[in-house]
Design a protein around this nucleic acid. Structure first.
Lengths: 185, 185, 185, 185
DNA sequence: GATGAATGAGGTTTCATTCAT
DNA sequence: TATGAATGAAACCTCATTCAT
């Protein structure tokens, strides 16, 4: 793996394991097996590393979620298709999931970074808009509905992991129905 | 106000304003108008301050939420009564809300701390259990239903503030209906 | 016991146990069961406590050594009488002994303090002078001979304790003969 | 000079000048002309510096003392050869002497450190053993005879310096004869 | 007089950042 | 380009000293 990738991977692991404020450049350099100076060749600061992880991760995530997404079927079918992909992605990538939870509302990530990282997820907004036009959803903006679904799911997976609940097919469909029921009129 | 309270209040303000890792003992001592040594008399570390804030806050929160709560009325009436109180508490106490959001899943707060802090909220579980027995809710444990409602609300308030959505009576009732619809069978 | 005595005793114990630089006023106040402020009523600083311990101790020591010392007998008899008393005092008072060793050459104790504390030991010098006049000793000043005997004995007892050598009658007489042989012509 | 050596030299000077407990890392860093962080790269604490100084010094000392020591001649000749070397070393290296005196019985130096540092001085014990076998010395172990001689000499040099006695050839021979007379049968 | 909570100067220690190799 | 020893600013933390009770 090339050095930049190694640095991002090591940083992600360490931040999730121990929290951003306890991770030092020395830690990262050791874990990534590169010199401290090499980190500075690629990143100006720890914040920049966090931002890069976030952007890279959202890119991977959207690639995973939208693979083979034709945009066919009813609103509900597509709703369930996409949110199931999100759930699966997070269940298969626990490090990425924790990272996503912790930094979703962190001052380290500016609005601009969020805009850049989230641009691939605008297809969700189209879907919500379609549902709204069909009178299926409660009266909120598409963006707000998406954020609502996302943050709910985020919190719930967190607590489930904490409590040791397994994310089997049954629970995934339960969760999907809760997401749907919450916003449907 | 006594010094320990002043230290906790100053710490809460500073942590929410600037993030835990940028807050120093010198900052806290200045804001609280006590000597640095005085902070060490009361707390062994910054982590201990965070834990104390959490515990104190959950105590206040539960006091606010359960004031005059008779436990009468239908399950839905009581559900709406209690969650509206939670919403109001967080809307009236934004500092406490942000603090609560950020540390809910932080490694700084151990499971033990959470148990202690959350013990007053078990009345929620009784309510969910009653609903479950009446066949009103989706098949999850009372505890998980509570955590689901809480994480939903938590995320919703965050995005509302971020997006500048006002928490008026209309929106509060919208949110309450989303909480209810999500878990009801 | 009155408070001043309790403070001196507690300080002596703690200094010997852990070394002067690790002993705090809080430690002393705890061990002596007096308030910190009370220590300041009696002593201006830690150094002054050390000085007071030294002076008190040398007073006790000389009282012990010279009890019933008539000054009769040959020079050698009196030499052995007095130094045996010194040895016995130190063997019976290990705390005082260690304290004496450590501060004999410490900058904490000024020349003036030494003069005051040692004034009762001038009888030793008279004895050495008498021996010198009789041509019994190597050509050094009485004072120097006394200091020589004292520091030798001091070091030797220290190492003996360290090595677990018992100070029985046989060893005491061996030591006395070494002290005598060293200085005799 | 390399940095580690500079740190040890600066520490030795400062400790002797002002006493261990008044010497700070900032003082050492200034005197050694290195950053404070550099001291921490080499030593975990002030105690570790003291230990390293002790070990380095005993190495130098033994090198000086045993240079060209063939181990020929009578016991007395060798006895005087070696102890004169010790006296000369200390007279020529006053800093090292004071350091050695103060820390010989300090809790900062563990038994293990002493063992390591003193291993080069075992040739003394062989000499004492030889004398004992020839029936020349008082009945003590070689080790204790060595410690006796050493502590005597140590104290004697201290008081000499204090009292302004010059260590000329005459006085050195007087001291050597006192060392010898004390232990010989 | 006796107390000990409160203080903050000054020590210890960490770690982001630089720069010679 | 890659490195990591060296740095020192800025954090942490202790404890002698004060002073209101």
């Amino acid at each position: 793996m090339e050095k930049k990738k190694r640095i991002l991977k090591a940083s992600l692991e360490l931040i999730v394991e121990r929290g951003l404020h306890t991770v030092t450049f020395a830690n990262i350099s050791q874990r990534a097996k590169v010199g401290i100076g090499t980190i500075y060749k690629h990143f100006k600061s720890k914040d920049e590393i966090v931002q890069q992880i976030w952007i890279e991760q959202k890119k991977e995530e959207s690639t995973y979620i939208f693979r083979d997404y034709a945009g066919n079927g009813t609103v509900k079918e597509r709703f369930e298709f996409l949110w199931e992909r999100v759930i699966n992605y997070f269940c298969d990538n626990p490090l990425e999931y924790y990272f996503s939870y912790h930094f979703a509302a962190s001052p380290v990530l500016s609005k601009e970074i969020h805009e850049v990282a989230m641009k691939d997820f605008l297809a969700f907004d189209d879907l919500y808009e379609e549902g709204l036009n069909l009178g299926m959803f409660k009266p909120l903006s598409p963006r707000h509905l998406r954020l609502y679904s996302f943050s709910t799911l985020n919190g719930w997976i967190l607590w489930s992991k904490d409590e040791g609940i397994e994310m089997d097919q049954k629970n995934i469909h339960l969760l999907l129905s809760m997401l749907w029921d919450a916003i449907k009129k």
